[in-house]
Nucleic acid binder design. Structure first.
Length: 185
DNA sequence: AATAGGATCTCCT
DNA sequence: GGAGATCCTATTG
């Protein structure tokens, strides 16, 4: 049984479906990574999404092919890593359970024990660069392996947004440490 | 434990 | 000019 490419395995999923599917997946970026334990979905007609007002230079890759990266600069300082779903839709990767390349990630994080808990920390630990915007998850530099069986999910409202705060579009892996924040409830 | 300020990019009004 | 899908450090209760 040949593996289907990642882009074909997620074809047709909207951001919410992809955000749920990515929990428990293994993300590797140039030899560093781990298990995805926290994601958020951002939709096309979603006031909290960068795509809400249509394409700009920054968000162009959100309107590009599904299964590629959308990397943007946050608050002028940090980078954040997303996986593009349908047109204008993406999934923000907010936390990993580190597994591979831990020493490399520790050195990039300058000894902080919080390696990959939070989108900015995760991007720094993985060595994400702004030039990675638009890169495919095809095994060249970026790869994602989806989990065999669906894990138990935590669901809650998204973090750090001021609009559409009621949507339960944040997802987490149940029973783990390392989430960027606890889930309510 | 909680709060406040700084870093300084991209888009919007 | 101001806000934002953030994080770190310092200071206060």
């Amino acid at each position: 049984m040949p593996d289907l490419p990642f882009s074909e395995r997620i074809a047709g999923l909207d951001a919410v479906a992809l955000a749920r599917r990515l929990i428990g997946a293994t993300l590797l970026v140039r030899g560093a990574g781990g298990t995805i334990i926290e994601t958020e979905a951002y939709g096309r007609d979603d006031p909290a999404s960068h795509s809400f007002r249509g394409p700009t230079r920054r968000n162009a890759s959100m309107f590009g092919p599904a299964g590629h990266a959308y990397v943007y600069r946050s608050y002028g300082i940090h980078l954040c890593l997303n996986v593009v779903a349908g047109p204008g839709e993406a999934v923000l990767i907010r936390a990993l359970a580190p597994q591979t390349g831990i020493e490399l990630m520790q050195s990039r994080r300058r000894g902080s024990p919080l390696l990959c808990s939070g989108p900015g920390r995760l991007a720094e630990a993985l060595g994400i660069r702004i030039e990675d915007d638009g890169a495919p998850f095809d095994g060249t530099d970026f790869s994602i392996a989806l989990p065999g069986t669906p894990p138990d999910l935590l669901v809650g409202p998204r973090i750090g947004i001021s609009k559409a705060q009621d949507l339960p579009w944040r997802f987490g892996l149940a029973g783990v440490t390392g989430l960027s924040r606890p889930f309510p409830g």
